[in-house]
C-alpha cells in the first residue's frame, strides 16, 4: 500500500546524504527491515527504481536485510520467535510479551561513487 511513499522518503534521505558526501551517484543502498515493521520488502523493491528516477540513487542496487522477529515473555523470560506483533508465550501462556527485535526499519548505509 504505502511502499511508494516510503521509497520516496528513503530516496530523499540517501540523496541528501550522498550530496553532503559529494557523491556522483549512489551505487548501493543497504536497508534493514524487521519482519514486524509492516513493510513488504518485495513491494519496496518494486517501487524503489521509480522513486529513485532523477536522483543520485537512480539505478542503485537495493540490499535488504530482513530481521527475524523475537519476543521475550515478561512472566517467565522465555525467548521465542513471532510472526505477529502480539503473541502468547508458548511456555507459560502469558500474554505479557514484548517484542525485542523485528520492528526495525533503518537505512544502514549507502555506497557512493565519488563525484568529479
Amino acid at each position: 500500500m504505502h511502499e511508494m511513499s516510503i521509497a520516496l522518503s528513503i530516496v530523499d534521505a540517501v540523496d541528501a546524504q550522498a550530496r553532503v558526501e559529494g557523491a556522483g551517484r549512489i551505487s548501493r543502498v543497504e536497508l534493514v527491515i524487521g519482519r514486524l515493521a509492516g513493510i513488504e520488502p518485495e513491494s519496496l523493491r518494486f517501487c524503489f527504481p521509480a522513486a529513485a528516477t532523477g536522483t543520485l540513487a537512480e539505478g542503485a542496487e537495493l540490499d535488504i536485510e530482513e530481521i527475524a522477529a523475537v519476543a521475550v515473555c515478561g512472566a517467565c523470560g522465555f525467548r521465542f520467535s513471532v510472526t505477529f506483533p502480539v503473541a502468547e508465550c508458548p511456555e507459560c501462556r502469558s500474554l505479557r510479551i514484548s517484542v525485542v527485535s523485528g520492528e526495525e526499519f533503518v537505512i544502514r548505509s549507502i555506497t557512493i561513487e565519488e563525484g568529479d
Binding site: A13, Q17, A18, S27, L31, I107, R108, I110, T111
Partner: peptide, 14 residues
C-alpha cells in the same frame, strides 16, 4: 570510479 561506503543507521520514518 572510486566507491565509498557511508554508514547511516537512520530510521526511515525519522
Amino acid at each position: 570510479r572510486r566507491e565509498r561506503k557511508i554508514g547511516m543507521e537512520q530510521d526511515v520514518l525519522q
